[in-house]
Simulated scan of single mutants.
Amino acid sequence: MGLVHRLVLGLLLAGNLAAAQAQSCAAQSGMTPPLVVELYTSEGCDSCPPADRWLSGLRGRPGVFAAAFHVDYWDRLGWRDRFASPLYTARQQQNVAQSGARFAYTPQIVVNGRDWRDGELPTPSASEKAVIALKLQRDGEEQVAVESRALPGAPARVQLWWAQLEDGHSSEVRAGENRGATLRHDAVVRAYASLPAGGADQQWLLKKAPAKGEDGRPRRLLLVATDAANGRVLQAAQLGC
């Protein structure tokens, strides 16, 4: 076999392997709902770094999915948080009433849709049965097929949201309350969207859900289903490939 033929064969095999890996890259929800922990934080807030470190400590914890939403209302006070977005600020403010908080603040921890100030996380209940099933299937480097299915006990109206997450970020803060500090972040939300509330049985294709993020770091996709009536988390699944 000539050199050209060997090169062509190698490229074909590599392409087939990549396609097979993409097809086998999938995640689905479990029989019981996990804990979904949202942290609302900012690099401009001097009380936020301990909460950031606490969230990083949740990495790999079974039954727990974490997401750090960096809000932008601290940006006007001397340091612009490059991870912040007005979308995340709007999400926090819109969920104030449902979460049980009196107002939006940082650092705020929300666990399964509820404002959480007790420190130690609750233990997921093994007796609580899932009423929603979620499935994520990667379809190439940029796209992910998503499926939500109602199980017995599902509410009539469900809201689905997803976030693309990255770990291992750091910033050298040069102004504001954290001036001179090097801050490290995990589970940073880099993209976020939600669907209008509707029935639980849905299928769609996310066309901008890359497997790699900034500087080639792995990007995870977190999908969460909530009860549209009260914001309570019903189910979640996370795709890490």
Rank of each mutant, 00 (worst) to 15 (best):
S125K: 04
A130Q: 02
A229P: 05
N112Q: 03
K129M: 13
Q21T: 12
D118C: 08
A229E: 14
A156F: 14
L234N: 07
L3R: 14
R82S: 14
A211P: 06
R59M: 11
R157E: 15
G15S: 05
G78F: 13
A84Y: 09
Y40S: 03
A181R: 13
D46N: 09
W161K: 00
A163W: 04
V188P: 01
R220E: 07
A197H: 11
Y192R: 06
A22D: 11
D75E: 07
L165W: 10
A156E: 15
V233E: 00
V111Q: 03
Q28Y: 15
G57K: 02
A229N: 08
N95G: 10
Y73Q: 05
L195D: 09
K135A: 14
V189G: 00
V233L: 05
Y105D: 05
L183S: 05
A67I: 08
E166G: 01
L13E: 09
L134Y: 10
Q143W: 04
A126H: 07
T182A: 06
K135M: 07
A84D: 08
V71G: 03
P210W: 09
L13P: 02
V8L: 15
R59E: 13
H185V: 07
K129N: 11
R217N: 07
A19M: 10
R80F: 12
T123R: 12
A163K: 01
A67V: 08
S47M: 07
F69R: 01
V36R: 01
S99D: 04
D118L: 09
G176Q: 09
G216H: 11
L234V: 11
L165E: 05
Q235H: 02
P107D: 05
A228F: 14
L136K: 01
Q21H: 13
V111W: 11
G180F: 14
S56R: 11
C45F: 13
S24I: 12
A90E: 10
R219Q: 12
L9A: 14
R219V: 03
G140F: 14
L160Q: 07
L58A: 00
D215N: 13
L77E: 06
L206P: 01
A26G: 10
L13I: 12
A175G: 14
V96T: 11
G199M: 10
R61P: 09
H185R: 03
Y105W: 13
G119K: 04
A67P: 04
R80P: 06
L12N: 00
G180E: 10
Q98H: 04
